[in-house]
Design a protein around this nucleic acid. Structure first.
Length: 827
DNA sequence: TGGAATTGGCTTTTT
DNA sequence: GCCAATTCCA
């Protein structure tokens, strides 16, 4: 067996305890920076080395990025074991795991095969329709509030019936009707929303003994990371899976619970021992990340929360520098100061840009900082996914694909029925919808039968029929690859009543191929976590574990391996061309950008095809739906990283800047005025704690005297959290016009107060070209797919910067730099 | 019917 | 200040 000594090397006593406790419940209370990921990966490696079947182990994380990292590190630990067992451990996000389960047990969960996943923008859109349909005026019923309420109800496993029964007030009754209608519309469209992924899985596991039994065996050893952020549905899933074997390892830190607002229940971790009597509890309190001063400040801050389990973080690291607190005049001044401090750090400490990060409470705060970085020519990457996938044209193209994959998806179909414009107006859609409802058919089918629809002119009817015909033909293009998937869906019913090993659709041929793609050593990086458990054909024969259970991979070659089917890329290209996206585009800058984004989407699809040979359209859409902002973060990018405090969880940087430390921002206004302000305030404090503990060596906190908020200049007070930091840890630079009011943070601290006007010590060093980023004309770059190329032209600046690159392999291409992952090769 | 212009709402945080 | 949605105009 593998080298167990090696796996346990360099671990502390408590870490070893956590790693070697395999059977029975285990709670690891892991303080910030205490080597939690290390413990989890070593633990998985240890289990495998002990002879546990890797395919019975599932590790659940919060983000794809965390999953990918965990997978990579686990595989590295097990690299010398025969048969690459590390690849067969499933490391997945909660949501991906649920998709897996629901694809397998869709029928039992009441879902149609090929159900689609509604993204949040579509969800909002659908909600508007719901409110209109139910006759609730948006004045009285704030769509966001209703949506939030329903989401909360869902995550508490309250169905429409329960909510309706409980509704007393006018508002509650309205909400209940909206809930009922919303669910009906989702069902009609064959869609689920993000919440449903968790909720439907939880209910399936709770109510379906057969499915539960199979999945309990399938996932015999469960690890759940960030347990403090689990909500009720996730809690139920974990418990239902673990209730028999009890082999559950939860890791987390109550002090880093920051998702209460979306239903996460901190009690889940606080009461773990009550739910799992006899659970072993291991505390990891030694911090390996931060300096003593940073850790002291973080501890002092979090002490102000009541009702928390006391925890003493300590470190053997050096004391380090004091924390710099900057009080600036306004947001522009703040941004400018931040940029100068980053430049100074690079100059004086030799830190590269990618060792630095800037955190903020709300996304809106990033813009000014972005501008300042751009003007100074400092490369940066911003972690915000909507940037690309939220674009209209991107969503439009994806909507076409969604309809192809799921013809019942009315949300997507309505989105693109007249995009590009083809003369199908609102009234036409209304008539088609009515006709569809009347005959119990989909909107798409109604289009095909448009001639039967009264009041439609021949011309319009023919346009509709033509569109429906196009969808038919596109659908045929995918049928080769979709067929096996739906066949597998039917098999799942068989699997429910039969433990035949090969009936597990999780190992359907498409997935097996999917996995093979992962096994290519050249294909590393972000998609590895999807590889999970499917096995290359034939390898299962080597499985010699006595306790191997029902889900060994199939031993036969995929029957569909040779079938010709169109790649996602080709399909997308075809749709884009035939739907007329490329038609009347002039060369206005807007159109050019739209074209570039569509091109980029196709490029990204190409990468999917390479990584997932034989991957189905459904899988592609799933992957797109479940990418999160943080997933796009790249390390070693040579750029400063900008992100929200929420996105920062789990990461670390040598230099961290937190901006906007002001009452009303951090803590957020809601924590002062909301209905549950005490709880909210504590969560805000944890959020600040998370931010501070990301810093390894240097921490800078900034606030301003006045700030433009929603177009209004507001006077700001320094955050009350600043006053909770020990003064001796701080070094304050007050650059504001006016002294800070008495009693707040500025006065009591011992640090020198430097009154200085905006420092001119570092004039923008590259005055001639203000919008310079890392990419410039003539730069030699490498692209994962297209290889070497030279930048011919930089077309625009900013977050959606595009460049035209001349590739050796395929000539000119326009790409969005934020997406394309171009590697600069000069110098 | 499509495009331009004005208005109004909005901002937490995210899978 | 920005974005989306509605309204207005051709």
């Amino acid at each position: 067996m593998a080298n167990i000594e090696q796996i346990l090397t360099d671990l502390t006593e408590p870490q070893i305890e956590a790693v070697t406790h395999i059977d029975g419940p285990l709670l690891v209370l892991a303080g910030a920076g205490s080597g939690k990921t290390r413990v989890i990966t070593r633990r998985i490696a240890y289990m495998v080395a002990q002879g546990l079947p890797p395919w019975n182990i599932v590790a659940v994380t919060f983000t794809n990025k965390a999953a990918a990292e965990m997978k990579t590190r686990t595989m590295a630990l097990l690299a010398d074991m025969p048969g690459r067992p590390g690849e067969r451990v499933l490391v997945s996000t909660f949501h991906s795991l649920c998709v897996r389960i629901l694809r397998q047990y869709g029928q039992a969960a009441g879902l149609p095969p090929g159900f689609g996943i509604l993204d949040s923008a579509d969800q909002t859109k659908l909600f508007k329709q719901v409110l209109a349909k139910v006759g609730l005026s948006p004045e009285n019923f704030n769509p966001n509030a209703v949506q939030g309420q329903i989401s909360r109800a869902k995550n508490n496993l309250q169905g429409p019936a329960q909510v309706t029964a409980k509704a007393v007030s006018f508002f509650d009754k309205g909400m209940a009707r909206a809930y009922v209608c919303y669910e009906e519309m989702l069902k009609a469209a064959g869609m689920v929303d993000f919440d449903d992924l968790l909720v439907k899985t939880a209910i399936l596991l709770r109510d379906n003994a057969e499915a539960r039994g199979q999945l309990q065996e399938r996932y015999g050893y469960i690890l759940i990371d960030e347990y403090q952020d689990t909500n009720k549905a996730q809690f139920v899933i974990a418990h239902m899976l673990a209730m028999n074997h009890k082999n559950i390892c939860a890791t987390g830190d109550p002090d880093q619970s920051i998702y209460g607002w979306r239903g996460a229940d901190i009690q889940n971790i606080l009461e773990f021992e009550e739910f799992f009597p006899g659970a072993k509890v291991v505390r990891l309190e030694q911090n390996y990340r931060s300096t003593k001063i940073i850790l002291k400040a973080a501890s002092a801050l979090i002490e102000n929360n009541r009702g928390r389990k006391k925890k003493d973080l300590w470190t053997e690291n050096e004391s380090g520098e004091k924390i710099t607190v900057v009080h600036a005049r306004d947001q522009h001044h703040e941004a400018q100061e931040v940029v100068q401090m980053l430049q100074a750090a690079r100059r004086e400490s030799g830190l590269t840009w990618d060792k630095m990060a800037i955190f903020y409470r709300t996304n809106a705060l990033s813009r000014v900082v972005e501008d300042a970085l751009m003007t100074a020519g400092v490369p940066y990457q911003i972690v915000r996914g909507t940037e690309f996938y939220g674009r209209k044209e991107v969503k439009d193209v994806l909507a076409y694909l969604k309809v192809i994959a799921n013809p019942r998806d009315a949300v997507s179909f309505e989105r693109i029925i007249n995009v590009p414009p083809r003369g199908i107006g609102e009234s036409t859609v209304t008539r088609l919808s009515a006709f569809a409802a009347q005959h119990g058919i989909t909107l798409l089918e109604a289009c095909a039968r448009a001639r039967e629809v009264p009041e439609l002119s021949m011309k319009v009817a023919d346009t509709c029929r033509k569109l429906a015909g196009q969808f038919d033909s596109w659908r045929k293009d995918t049928s080769n690859r979709e067929a096996p998937a739906s066949a597998a869906d039917h098999d799942s019913t068989a699997a429910s009543s039969d433990l035949a090993p090969n009936a597990d659709p999780l190992f359907d041929p498409a997935l097996a191929q999917f996995a093979q793609g992962q096994l290519n050593p050249d294909d590393t990086e972000e998609y590895e976590y999807e590889a999970g458990e499917p096995e290359p054909p034939g390898a299962a024969a080597q499985a010699d574990h006595a306790d191997a259970v029902d889900d060994q991979p199939p031993t036969t070659d995929s029957p569909h391996a040779a079938s010709e089917s169109m790649s996602i890329r080709d399909l997308m290209e075809k749709v884009v061309n035939e739907a007329g996206f490329r038609q009347k585009r002039k060369t206005s800058p807007d159109d050019e950008e739209i074209n570039a984004n569509v091109d980029e989407l196709i490029n990204v699809a190409t990468e999917f095809d390479i990584r997932n040979p034989g991957g189905s359209l459904q899988e592609y859409l799933e992957q797109v739906a479940l990418v999160s902002d943080v997933d796009r973060l790249k390390e070693g990018s040579g750029a400063v990283t900008l992100m929200t405090l929420h996105a920062a969880k789990g990461l670390e940087f040598p230099l961290v800047v937190m901006i906007g430390l002001e009452d009303g921002l951090l803590p957020h206004q809601r924590a002062f005025s909301g209905p549950d302000s005490r709880r909210d305030m504590e969560e805000e404090r944890r959020l600040a704690f998370v931010g501070i503990t990301r810093a390894m060596r240097k921490l800078i906190l900034t606030c301003v005297e006045s700030r433009m908020v929603r177009g209004q200049i507001e006077r700001q007070k320094p955050s009350l959290f600043l006053g909770e930091l020990p003064p001796e840890c701080l070094q304050t630079r007050d650059l504001a016009f006016h002294a800070v009011s008495a009693g707040s943070w500025g006065d009591s601290n011992g640090g020198p107060r430097i009154h200085a006007p905006a420092s001119q010590s570092e004039p923008a060093s590259n005055g001639s070209s203000p919008h310079r980023t890392g990419y410039r004309r003539g730069l030699l770059v490498r692209h994962a797919k297209f290889g070497l190329g030279r930048i011919e032209e930089v077309l625009s600046a900013g977050p959606s910067q595009r460049v035209r690159v001349n590739f050796q392999s395929c000539g000119l291409k326009t790409m969005v730099t934020a997406m394309a992952n171009l590697e600069p090769l000069d110098r």
